[in-house]
């Protein structure tokens, strides 16, 4: 059951469900693709999240009711919408030592060895439910619950861009330098957000992430390629089209 309601006088929300699930999130993505294709005059931006799609509009160009009518029409037969194939983006990570100062803490907390933490973390495929919090920050689903660890008691004032961390049942990558309380287990040389690069953002909602463990030497050589602008990120595209 879809629900529609305003968020202020310049946004319309389509709510697809009341929980976090892949099925609901796929529907959000299918809706976004379909509505965006229409190029509705006055629609200026979209914010897809776990279970909502926010459509930002200019009220001087389109009325709420006219937009709502169009959107209701477009979201008919949601189950028949086809989903664009998703991409899997490979994120190379150097785990442990100075790059992941909390790897041992995460291992101890979960009665695992640091190597097991790395193996478990880098063997899953993570679904990107949405981006938010900071530019390029991905809300990921699919972390093995054997790695779940509470946040640090004392948040760090400065966490470098590229830090890979765990907080409760979530894992994520800091795209820009920020303060934060996540347990840091590694670091990627790849930039999730780079305003001077095209594309500016490496990951989009609906993508999948795969972490790969790399040595310090590989980290340094990738870092150099990234700063030279020659690094080719590994992306695999799904060939099959799914139903939403």
């Amino acid at each position: 059951m879809l629900q529609y309601f305003p968020s202020g006088d310049s946004a319309l929300i389509i709510k697809v469900g009341n929980e976090i699930s892949l099925e609901i999130n796929h529907k959000i993505r299918a809706l976004l693709t379909k509505i965006e294709k229409e190029n509705i005059p006055g629609v200026i931006d979209f914010i897809p999240s776990y279970n909502e799609l926010m459509i930002c509009y200019d009220p001087l160009k389109i009325s709420f009711h006219s937009l709502l009518t169009k959107i209701k029409f477009l979201s008919n037969n949601l189950e028949l919408l086809s989903l664009a194939p998703s991409s899997t983006i490979v994120i190379p990570v150097h785990y442990g030592d100075d790059f992941g100062p909390d790897l041992n803490e995460v291992a101890n907390y979960n009665n695992l060895s640091p190597d097991e933490v790395v193996r478990i973390h880098s063997s899953a495929s993570y679904h990107v439910y949405m981006l938010g919090f900071t530019p390029g920050f991905c809300y990921l689903g699919g972390m093995d619950q054997r790695l779940a660890t509470p946040r640090k008691h004392n948040p760090r004032l400065k966490i470098p861009a590229g830090a890979v961390g765990i907080a409760e049942q979530q894992t994520g990558i800091y795209p820009i330098e920020s303060p934060g309380g996540w347990q840091l287990i590694g670091q990627t040389p790849v930039k999730l957000f780079d305003p001077s690069r095209k594309p500016v953002f490496l990951v989009e909602p609906g993508d999948k992430l795969q972490f790969v463990s790399i040595t310090k030497e590989t980290y340094n050589s990738i870092l150099k390629e990234v700063s030279d602008g020659t690094y080719q990120i590994q992306i695999t595209h799904e060939t099959q089209t799914n139903k939403a």
Binding site: I44, D45, F193, E204
Partner: peptide, 8 residues
Amino acid sequence: TGFQRFGM
């Protein structure tokens, strides 16, 4: 505008 889906 146009980049909010990426958290911008």
